[in-house]
């Protein structure tokens, strides 16, 4: 093996070795193969018929309302894993009064958002303490359908925010992957705060 090739291989092996060791030690380390299911619409879509008899009240905190379907706690996560939905199901949930949460920044939210959506900028939400997170979300129905969205495309704050809500015990959290871009393209209801 000539000297240059030896150097190239040595540098790569040392980098990979240190990287893999530190990644194992690091609490924020990542798995070798990323979980792609986080970014794909779930194949098990709920049919529109299933929703026709479902009463959804996002602010019913009496605990009397039942969740949609039979949400199961994911043994690995320790909470109900948020589902990934596309524009069709997002609109179905919108039509049964699901709680829409916009995870984008305040500026983006005020520039226009899905009609009726509330704004929890993920960057602000993640900085709050666990107690504050509970206090912020206690007015919402844990069994109610929640749809979290952001800008669509490559934005991921909706995914992160949805997992935070899942951890807080919300059982029907859905990530609308297409987000604001798909919603606007479809021509569905939007609003700017000063249009209320």
């Amino acid at each position: 093996m000539n000297k240059t090739l030896k150097e190239i291989v040595t540098i790569l092996l040392v980098s990979a070795g240190i990287g893999l060791i530190f990644n194992t030690i690091n609490q924020e380390g990542v798995s070798l193969i990323a979980d792609a299911s986080r970014f794909k619409v779930d194949s098990t879509k709920i049919k529109a018929g299933d929703l026709s008899n479902f009463k959804n009240d996002p602010y019913d905190t009496t605990g009397k309302s039942m969740p949609l379907g039979n949400p199961q706690i994911d043994p690995k996560l320790g909470f109900v894993k948020p589902g990934n939905i596309g524009i069709v199901q997002a609109k179905q949930f919108y039509d049964i009064n699901a709680l829409f949460i916009d995870g984008r920044t305040r500026e983006e939210y005020f520039a226009g958002h899905i009609k009726g959506a509330i704004n929890y900028p993920y960057e602000e939400f993640k900085m709050t303490t666990p107690e504050q997170k509970v206090a912020i979300t206690k007015k919402f129905n844990k069994n109610g359908i929640i749809v979290v969205y952001c800008g669509g495309g490559t934005c991921e704050v909706s995914i992160d925010l949805a997992y935070e809500l899942g951890k807080l015990g919300f059982k029907s959290v859905n990530i609308f992957l297409g987000g604001w871009v798909d919603w606007v393209e479809a021509g569905y209801p939007t609003e700017k705060p000063n249009q209320k």
């Binding site: 040392v14 240190i18 990287g19 990542v30 990323a34 970014f39």
Partner: peptide
């Protein structure tokens, strides 16, 4: 991942190795 240049499954490997390759180089 946001660069959208490779399958999502594969993005973690460069994320683990590349920083150390940068540092060592």
């Amino acid at each position: 991942r946001n660069y959208d240049m490779m399958p999502i499954e594969l993005v973690n490997l460069p994320a683990i190795i590349l920083p150390y390759l940068e540092f060592i180089c």
